[in-house]
């Protein structure tokens, strides 16, 4: 019998639950960060005399399956206009789901990080003895930043007018999977257990002065839209069709790639007056 995964040996423990900080003014930006999520995972391999664990890998795979990411800006007065910036929808973000891996790691490899020093992956060797318990860690600290001021260039306004951040909402929802991979470049993946988690920031803002950038910025957190949650661990592979297609066909772009692209190519709706934009439609 070949090297195999011991049934029901996959275990995930959440060792630190994430939390979000209130949005913070840093320079000319508002930043969204918090404290990280940490988890550990373990999988036991079995084998018979003559079998080898060489090349078996155990690690975490992560998908982001929801991104909410918009900001509303307003000028000092009604005639200074308003702007709605949408990052989370097409064409700024072509798809919601993405394969989440650290920079320098190809999403086509699926694993969150294949760098040994990161501790996110464990690899069996020929010298290992069965039963072999492979243990890994997981860490993530999602974050983002937006500009405090955007210039409104609506043609009706005449000259460009500074518009100040008035409200924002960000939500990043993830599914993290403990997976084992058989040896070789085409080695089969076994997705063994998973959990859902998310981080969310919603706030309204008011500059204390209308200089550009403003000297001070009042941040009012919207409690119902802010926080972080972690679900319970689910045994077996994920069956959520919102992202399981990516398990079979990993994309070329990672979630970090998408996040940077959507920030650079955000959709902008400018109005010459204070407008209440409908976030459900834009």
């Amino acid at each position: 019998m070949a090297t195999r995964i011991k049934p029901n040996s996959a275990k995930i423990a959440i060792t630190a639950r994430p939390a979000v900080d209130a949005p913070t003014k840093v320079g000319a930006s508002i930043t969204f960060t918090g404290t990280p999520i940490r988890a550990t995972g373990e999988v036991t391999l079995l084998g018979d005399p003559g079998d080898s664990a060489a090349g078996w890998k155990v690690g975490f795979v992560q998908f982001q399956w929801i991104e909410t990411n918009w900001c509303h800006y307003r000028g000092q007065t009604d005639k200074d206009g308003s702007i709605f910036v949408q990052r989370g929808r097409p064409p700024a973000r072509p798809a919601q789901a993405c394969c989440d891996c650290v920079d320098g790691n190809s999403p086509r490899d699926l694993f969150y990080s294949s760098v040994a020093a990161h501790g996110e992956i464990a690899t069996g060797t020929a010298a290992d003895v069965f039963p072999l318990k492979l243990t890994v860690g997981h860490y993530d600290l999602p974050q983002d930043a937006v500009q405090l001021v955007e210039m409104n260039t609506h043609p009706v306004s005449g000259s460009p007018k500074p518009n100040f951040l008035a409200s924002s909402q960000m939500e990043f929802h993830f599914c993290t999977i403990l997976s084992a991979r058989e040896p070789g470049a085409l080695g089969a993946f076994h997705h063994l257990a998973c959990f859902y988690w998310n981080v969310r920031w919603q706030a309204t803002y008011k500059p204390t002065s209308f200089t550009n950038p403003p000297a001070g910025f009042q941040v009012n957190v919207v409690p119902a839209g802010s926080g972080a949650e972690v679900g319970h661990v689910i045994a077996g592979p994920p069956v959520d069709r919102r992202f399981t297609g990516l398990l079979r066909n990993p994309p070329a772009q990672s979630c970090n790639d998408l996040a940077r692209a959507e920030a650079a190519g955000a959709i902008r709706h400018e109005a010459p007056i204070w407008k209440n934009f409908d976030v459900r439609k834009l």
Partner: peptide, 9 residues
Amino acid sequence: CRAPCRANI
């Protein structure tokens, strides 16, 4: 300064 990051170690 922070940045748009989803995976981060």
